[in-house]
Amino acid sequence: MHLTKTEPQGNMFRFYRMEIVRGLFGDWGLIREWGRIGSSGRVRTDWFDSEADAKDARFDLHMQKAKRGYE
């Protein structure tokens, strides 16, 4: 999932990317990457016991970002 937020008048050009991946030991990871468009950004991985938990976390983050203007 790739979200962007652009506000040229405020010089704000941001991205937020989320991906769910399977770990080596049967766990599930939610990889998040965010930053300014054109830069490499920051990366964080949160680990979950099940794919459903990772999807729920992704949905919650998606809703938070939508409230902040990301599309």
Score class of each variant (00 low, 15 high):
D56Q: 02
V43R: 03
M1I: 03
R32P: 04
L61V: 12
S40R: 04
D56W: 12
A66R: 08
D46Q: 08
H2G: 06
R44I: 05
E33I: 07
R22Q: 15
D60C: 08
R32E: 02
T45L: 07
T6D: 14
R14E: 14
K67P: 01
A66Y: 04
H62A: 06
L3W: 00
D46A: 07
K55L: 06
H2M: 08
T45W: 04
F25S: 11
R32K: 06
G69D: 08
G23L: 12
D49N: 05
Q64Y: 09
R36H: 12
E7I: 15
I20N: 01
I37Y: 00
Q9G: 11
E7W: 11
H2E: 11
Q64C: 07
T6F: 09
M18P: 09
S50N: 01
S40T: 03
G26L: 11
R22K: 15
G35Y: 02
G38I: 00
D49S: 03
H2T: 07
S39H: 13
L3K: 07
G26C: 09
W47A: 05
G10F: 06
W34T: 13
L61Q: 15
F15M: 12
G29C: 09
R44G: 03
E7V: 14
R17M: 12
W34L: 06
K5H: 06
D46Y: 03
K65T: 03
R44C: 03
R58H: 09
D46G: 02
W47L: 00
R68A: 05
R58Y: 09
K65N: 05
D27Q: 11
R22H: 13
S39P: 05
G35W: 00
H62I: 02
A54P: 04
D27A: 12
I20F: 04
R36F: 11
K67R: 07
K65M: 02
M1C: 06
F15A: 11
R14P: 09
Q9E: 14
A52M: 08
R44K: 10
R58A: 10
D56E: 08
D46T: 08
R14Q: 15
D60P: 06
K65H: 03
K67Y: 03
H62R: 07
P8V: 10
L61E: 14
R44Y: 02
G38Q: 11
E51H: 11
R14L: 14
D27S: 08
G10Q: 15
N11P: 09
Y70G: 01
E33W: 03
R22V: 14
D53T: 02
Q9H: 13
T45G: 00
E71L: 10
R58Q: 12
I37M: 03
D46E: 07
T45N: 05
T4V: 13
R32V: 05
R42E: 07
E33Q: 15
D46V: 08
G26E: 05
M12Y: 11
V43M: 02
S50F: 04
M63S: 13
D53L: 08
R42W: 00
K5D: 09
D60M: 11
R17C: 10
S50G: 00
A54F: 05
W28K: 13
F59W: 13
D49M: 00
A54I: 02
